[in-house]
Amino acid sequence: MSPEVSLREAYGHALVEMGKENPDIVVLDADLSKSTMTQYFAKEFPGRFFDCGIAEQNMMGIAAGLAASGKIPFASSFAVFVPGRCFDQIRMSIAYSRFNVKLVVTHGGISVGEDGVSNQSVEDLSLICSLPGLTVIVPADAIEAVQAVKAVAAYEGPCYVRLCRPKLPLVNDNDYHFNLGRAVTMRQGKDVTIIAIGTMVVAALEAANGLQQEGIDCGVLNMSTLKPLDEAAIIQVATSCGAIVTAEEHLEHGGLGSIVAQVVARHRPVPMEFVAIKDTYAESGKAGELLQKYGLTAKDIKQAVHTVLKRKLSASAT
């Protein structure tokens, strides 16, 4: 397995690099710069860094105001404190008003770990994807995180990028090229395809490797841009495989699974299974323990593949 790299660290350094090239980039944080890693930018460009204190709703408005006069604001906090606490501020001052604000959040999902439910974010994608006009990206490793952050800086319009707390193994090569709005085929397969985001991409690849030993040819699609959605890529794997499993560190309701299912139901109905957190909150614990307890491991994905393949078989038998 490749070395584990922090997406947050990568984000922090990317901000500094971008800040050197583009004087319009400004950064806001809400007393979490040491965790979101905006601290590096703060140190390098103190005049372009605004710590808003523990006042996230206000930070959203300030970011919108900075964007209104041509700045490119990156505003960061934990995922749970952004779409959740600031939903109406994002809706009115950023999305509906169409300001060029970049929300880059860290600590998505339950792999936040020991801090428990209050600091874990399991609803954010559902909330943020519901807003018209927002671009939503969930990178799968540090390489993709850096490129996604650069891509949103270059893109005109409000964006949300969700990073996780733990380091992740690299799933992309150094020559990887992120295309906003394009799913990434990590692996071709003809029996079934796992569509995954974020932390679950590495688990999906592990599952696919294991399934290969069992003679199952399993594809993996990294759906890093959740919005706008690469519908063609979904329709293509639905057509070629006839079975899909989605995997995400988020509630089953309203996230990747729901979004993909809508496309599948409309264009190419095939059996689907969903690896996600069921209708519940998690708890404190080590990241690995939580992912295991709440069904977000390679083993859970494999199980879902078996289930979906059974349904595929029985459907083709009738």
């Binding site: 206000n58 930070m59 408005g61 300030i62 919108a64 105001g65 900075l66 964007a67 109406d88 501020q89």
Partner: peptide, 11 residues
Amino acid sequence: QGLSFAVGVAL
């Protein structure tokens, strides 16, 4: 929400 926005515009 307007005062927050105004602070950003002023900055």
